[in-house]
């Protein structure tokens, strides 16, 4: 377990950064998801290194729930995440930008419904 100078820490968008260090070859990288409270969904908060799932959960608890951030943790091996190719961002996401009618904002909500 050598100390890594370029520990990816919170930088999870650039999955390639993990390649620069020798730590990930010994200890895999995990993505951490926290659910702030019951009824809400788990949200990606960052990543960490751990030898296995159990240690990843414990490290996630120690690194990401120090200030009461949540009541449930998911960890997922970073290698298991399938990401969209940034080169295809245009063809993937551009077509939806001019289709405002897909937003459900073209009808009036009755007052009785309250906040939605």
């Amino acid at each position: 377990m050598s100390k890594s100078e370029d520990n990816p820490g919170q930088d999870t968008t650039d999955t390639d950064s993990s390649q620069k260090s020798d730590l990930p070859t010994l200890i895999p990288l995990w993505e951490v998801f926290i659910r702030p409270k019951n009824g809400l969904h788990h949200k990606h908060v960052g990543s960490l290194h751990a030898t296995d799932d159990e240690m990843a959960l414990q490290a996630a608890r120690d690194v990401y729930t120090r200030r009461g951030e949540g009541n449930s943790i998911w960890v997922v091996p970073s290698a298991q995440i399938v990401a969209s190719d940034p080169d295809f961002a245009g063809e993937n996401f551009e077509p939806s930008s001019d289709k405002v009618y897909r937003h459900p904002s073209f009808y009036d909500i009755p007052d009785e419904v309250g906040h939605m």
């Binding site: 100390k3 200890i27 960490l48 414990q58 120090r66």
Partner: peptide
């Protein structure tokens, strides 16, 4: 600590 994760866990 030998790694960042333990460096948070141990002072905890």
């Amino acid at each position: 600590a030998p790694m960042l994760e333990e460096d948070l866990s141990i002072p905890n």
